[in-house]
């Protein structure tokens, strides 16, 4: 027994232990519940099998390519189990539709989904993101010139960034109407302080020695800013932009829960939930996930291009 155990490769041991545990639980329940459910056994077998494949892949081929494949396999397995479980157990569609149905729904309602993306992302989130981050960067330049303001605004900004600013949505709807300007306003309020705090910190990231060197070159404020301080602030600015990118879509979608015209991702989600059309809800969520990660990925890629010199970007 011990020999067999030590002959088992290390990656397989947790899987064997889990399988043994599951078998024990099923065996203990046997007298009471009769034969174990074949559907459950099938799902468990698939899960354990996929886990074994992944564990073996990671142990046998160390390297980043294989790790990406492992992550994809994990995701595919989850979706497969979801599909299989909803079909085997005949889960009602108003509780959890299978992924294939959601996919079919995405295919058949591209027009609606696109209208919603335009309304929520391009009009609401993107304009609010541009205004909010732009204003924050400009304001940060002002704040940076006055140390007193900087010391006062940083704690206040950090404090405000932790508050549930999304709650201003009903107020913005009252001020700017149901259409996208109110969503953009919520987004502006949400992204402004995280962006401001990050930019101000970034502008302070240069060392006194470097700034002195610029002074010995008799560089003007604008020259120092453009050639030294803005480049040095870029990692911080991109951090703020990435935080703001996720906040922007969240803000635009949640703001629509408080009132919107008859289009938009948040509107669609809340009304289709009410009509129990859950495949449409999941379709919107899938699209929101795609749009959100693309928007974030855009800034992450740009960051890699712009701040290639920074230690966090090197050595990858």
């Amino acid at each position: 027994m011990t020999a067999a155990w030590s002959a088992t490769p290390a990656w397989a041991r947790p899987i064997l232990v889990t399988a043994a545990l599951i078998a024990a639980v099923l065996a203990l329940r046997l007298p009471a519940a009769g034969a174990p459910d074949a559907r459950l056994l099938l799902l468990l077998a698939i899960w354990l099998g996929a886990w074994a494949v992944n564990a073996w892949l990671v142990a046998a081929y160390p390297g980043s390519r294989i790790r990406a494949l492992v992550a994809v396999l994990f995701g595919v397995t989850l979706i497969g189990l979801w599909e299989l479980a909803t079909r085997l157990y005949e889960v009602p569609r108003v509780i959890l539709p299978p992924p294939s149905m959601i996919g079919a729904r995405i295919m058949t309602s591209t027009d609606t989904l696109w209208t919603d993306v335009v309304q929520t992302f391009f009009k609401g989130a993107l304009s609010g993101f541009a205004i909010g981050t732009g204003a924050a960067i400009l304001f940060a330049l002002v704040v940076d010139r006055f140390d007193f303001l900087r010391r006062g605004l940083l704690p206040v900004g950090n404090f405000l960034a932790a508050l549930p600013i999304i709650g201003t949505a009903p107020i913005m709807v009252m001020w700017f109407g149901f259409d996208w300007p109110s969503k953009a306003a919520v987004v502006v309020a949400m992204v402004f302080f995280p962006m401001l705090v990050n930019t101000v910190q970034g502008l302070a990231a240069t060392e006194a020695m470097q700034r002195d060197l610029m002074r010995t070159y008799s560089a003007s404020w604008a020259q120092t800013l453009l050639t030294l301080r803005l480049p040095a602030a870029m990692p911080f600015i991109f951090n703020g932009l990435k935080i703001s990118a996720t906040l922007a879509l969240i803000g635009a979608i949640v703001a629509e829960f408080f009132g919107s015209p008859t289009r938009g991702m948040g509107f669609r989600i809340s009304t289709e939930v009410g009509r129990l059309q859950l495949d449409m809800v999941w379709a919107e969520i899938a699209v929101a996930a795609l749009v959100g990660s693309t928007f974030y990925g855009f800034w992450a890629l740009l960051e890699r291009r712009v701040t290639f010199w920074h230690p966090s970007q090197r050595g990858r």
């Binding site: 992944n54 992550a71 996930a289």
Partner: peptide
């Protein structure tokens, strides 16, 4: 194995508006 399987999804979940699931 868990690291390679779960971690990328945990990081990706930070970039998508998972709060949209709330009403459902």
């Amino acid at each position: 194995a868990m690291d390679a399987s779960v971690m990328p999804w945990a990081i990706a979940s930070q970039t998508i508006p998972i709060i949209a699931l709330a009403p459902m």
